[in-house]
Design a protein around this nucleic acid. Structure first.
Length: 249
DNA sequence: GCATTAACTGCCG
DNA sequence: CGGCAGTTAATGC
């Protein structure tokens, strides 16, 4: 049966840009910083693009032309290490900014980004963004706060990788995901493979599996495939907070 | 049904 | 703790 009707279904690509005025995402930096001037030419110049699950929209080494804001969906940001191993830098959800480190001086992305589920991105070019930042101090200030937070998080990450044991890093990862994405009837909302846990915690898939098994035996978590449930958050927290009070945000 | 992928386990360096 | 091999379970064509 050649040329089935299913080919016609791909029409919703044309569903065009969601305007900032109509956008329901109140956590967006643009939306909250530019509420007075949402009709500016800057806001009108944005492009909306849809990414399917698993699609990579930033390639390591590609030239930086602009900056992405997540309208909805989740994304992983990673960097490829020496022997091809992936280091996940962070997970990002709606309202967050992707590719900001390359903004300004950097010419090429040092990170890659892949959608973990179907995701809608708002894209602004560097030039438009620069103009908007110079014109709107509130926007510039909010961006600065964002950068400061990112730096803080990044410094904590260095500490965790260099000083915590693998078990502590895996637990830290579980708590981070729980804090950031929450749970749905007991299970973490964001489903990840064991490898992705490993790439974030800075270890290997096998170690994550071993630690998960141990945690299951200790009744601290339970797992059904990719669905992970943290059954005893307090105990997990106390295990890492013994020596690491102010971790991660 | 069969083939591919992911989750696990054991062993060794 | 990381890497490899081998088994089992889940998923897709």
């Amino acid at each position: 049966m050649p040329l089935s009707a299913s080919h016609l279904k791909s029409r919703n690509n044309a569903l065009n840009d969601v305007s900032c005025e109509a956008c329901i995402n109140e956590k967006c930096l643009i939306k909250s910083s530019l509420s007075s001037s949402l009709d500016s030419k800057f806001v009108k110049s944005k492009n909306t693009l849809k990414c399917k699950k698993g699609q990579q929209f930033i390639m390591e080494g590609a030239p930086v032309n602009g900056l992405f804001f997540i309208l909805n969906g989740t994304v992983k940001v990673f960097r490829t290490g020496i022997n091809g191993r992936e280091q996940i830098v962070r997970f990002a959800k709606e309202g967050e900014i992707i590719g900001h480190r390359g903004f300004g001086t950097e010419e090429y992305y040092s990170i890659g980004a892949i959608a973990l589920e179907d995701t809608v991105l708002c894209y602004f070019s560097k030039e438009e963004l620069q103009e908007a930042l110079l014109e709107n101090p509130q926007f510039a200030y909010n961006m600065m706060l964002f950068y400061a937070n990112e730096l803080n998080r990044s410094e904590n990450k260095v500490k965790s990788i260099s000083q915590m044991t693998v078990r502590e890093r895996v637990i830290d990862t579980l708590l981070y995901l729980h804090r950031k994405f929450g749970d749905l009837n007991g299970f973490l909302k964001l489903p990840l493979s064991r490898k992705e846990y490993a790439d974030y915690a800075g270890t290997t898939e096998e170690q994550v599996i071993r630690i998960f098994s141990a945690l299951k035996k200790e009744k601290l978590i339970s797992a059904k495939g990719k669905k992970i449930a943290v059954t005893n958050i307090q105990l997990l927290k106390s295990e890492i907070s013994e020596h690491h009070y102010f971790l991660d945000a």
